[in-house]
Every structure is written in structure tokens, then in C-alpha cells.
Amino acid sequence: MSVVLDRRKMVLLMGTAFVAACAPKAPAVVDPAASVPPEVLQRYAALTDNGFDIPAVPPRYLTPENIRSEVDLAITDAPGTIVIDPWQRYLYFILPGNRATRYRVAVGDQGRSFSGEAVAQYDRNWPSWRPTDNMIREFPDMYGPYKNGLEGGLKNPLGARAIYLFRGKVDTYYRIHGTNEVASVGHATSAGCIRMYNQDAIHLAATYRRGAKVLVLTEAQSQAAFGAFVPATTPYSGGSFSDYIRTDPVPTDPSLYADS
């Protein structure tokens, strides 16, 4: 009797092992940070600024096209000039020797409606923000609660820094600023001017000089200089960045990342 039971146990064990061997294996969990160079992770690490704790940029967004880097840029404008390409979604800070620091930006309808020259008149740390009267009129539910303004802070849409652009003595209401929606960087969205990671906004604000020339490219100028833009990133719908998951993998080739 015991022999029969032992045989049955063996058959059951063999069957269980066979099913386990044939079952699909769970995909391995890959840490996105493992393929991002340490210096890039440090560049976008969490930091405390003026009493506010800025979170680190999640590694899944730190692809080579999204990180601050130094690039070749043959342009006749003097070093210190800021060139904004809202169509390719980059901002360039011109350096000597046909070089530039390149920042990835997000651009909204306001960002694509402005072109030509301006002056970077001044900047503010953790600026306050108030929606325009038109924004309040068109979207009262969204912007009405902020009609009296919103103090600077982590929930403020202007982020850690804002650079204010003027023409002569006239405010253009065109801003270069940080953002708390890190997933939007590199994308065209429905609202806003030129937005960048807070870490990059702090870097640019510390680098530029007040009164610097700013050149915002038209779509024709962008195409002439860089070609037609084909977005390489997943479209951003404007949802919460905490719910936004990239579907394309983080590149693993360290040579794709440039130092800055």
C-alpha cells in the first residue's frame, strides 16, 4: 500500500514540476537607474533650495535627449544668448567656440505663439503665479480658485525659478521656468510657456546674465536649422506625472550621455 502511495506522490511531484517548467516566467524587473550614468543621476538628484525640497527626476525620464548637455551649435549670436526652439523643444545657452548648453523643455500653446527677439529682464526664485484674466474666463473651474494668485512653492506651476522676458519696457508674459510636472518635459502641452526640470531652471538662472538677448525661433527657422521634428517621446496627455509611465526603455549605451 505504501508503495502505491509513494508512486502517486512521485507522479504528482513530476506533474507539478512539468507545469512549473512550462509556465511563463515573470519578466525581470529592471531598475531604470542602472542604465543612467551616476553623474547624470547626481545632476538631477533631490535637493533643498530656499527651504523647499525638490524631488529627484525619476531615472526613466533621464534619456540622452532629455538631459542637460553641451553640444556643438554653429550660430553667429554672441555667447550668453539664449536660443529657444519651441518646435524641437530645446533651449540653448550659447557658449564660446560654437558650443552651447542644451536643455530639454516642454512647450505649450503660449510658447508656440511667440517668436523673435526679447530680453531676459530678470529672474525670480520660487515666484508667485496668477493665471491671466483670459485663462480665468475660459477655464473658470480650473483657474478661478487662483484668481488672487498662488505663492511660490512645490505646487506652483512656475517651479523653482522663472526668467521674465521683455521687449523694451513691455512684459511679453513669456516665461522660462521650472515645473513640477516632470513628465511633461520634452512634450507639447495645452498650456504654459517654456518649462524645464527644476534642476535645469536653477542651473540656467545661475548661468545667464540679466539683460541677455533671447531669440525664439519660428517653425520655419527651426526646420531650416534642425530639420523637421519627429517626436521621439511618448505623447504627454497632461495627466498626473505620477501615473505617467514611459514605454520605451532607457538607453544603456553610456556614450549617448554627454557631460555638462
Rank of each mutant, 00 (worst) to 15 (best):
I136N: 07
E117F: 10
K147H: 13
R89Y: 00
D109N: 07
R167K: 12
I194W: 04
E151R: 13
N198W: 14
Y90D: 02
P140K: 06
Y197P: 12
L158Y: 13
T132W: 07
P145W: 09
V182H: 09
L158C: 12
D171E: 08
Y197T: 11
Q110F: 01
A118Y: 05
M135D: 10
I136L: 07
T132Q: 05
E181T: 15
I94S: 00
G108M: 04
I176A: 07
L150N: 07
G108R: 01
D141P: 03
G97T: 04
S128I: 08
E138S: 08
D123G: 01
E117T: 07
K155G: 12
G152V: 14
A100N: 00
Q88T: 01
G178A: 14
A106T: 02
R195F: 08
L158A: 12
M196K: 13
S190C: 11
V119E: 07
I136C: 09
Y92Q: 00
E117N: 09
G111H: 04
A162T: 06
R112S: 03
S128N: 09
N180P: 15
Q88E: 02
I163E: 04
V105L: 00
Y143P: 04
R89M: 00
H187W: 05
R175G: 04
F166M: 10
P157I: 11
E151A: 15
T189Y: 08
R137P: 04
Y197Q: 13
V107L: 02
N134L: 12
R104V: 01
K169Y: 01
I163R: 02
A191E: 14
L91R: 01
D109C: 00
Q199G: 14
V185M: 12
G108V: 03
F166A: 03
Q121W: 02
A120V: 02
A183F: 09
H177E: 10
R102L: 05
T189S: 11
E138H: 10
Y103R: 01
A106G: 05
E117K: 04
L165F: 05
Y197W: 15
R161W: 06
D133T: 12
G153T: 13
H187R: 13
A118R: 02
N198P: 15
A191M: 15
Y164F: 11
N148P: 09
A162R: 04
G149A: 12
L95I: 00
L150V: 15
A106K: 00
W129C: 08
G108K: 04
N180T: 13
I194E: 03
Y146M: 13
A100S: 02
R130N: 08
A100C: 02
R161D: 06
R102Y: 02
Y146S: 11
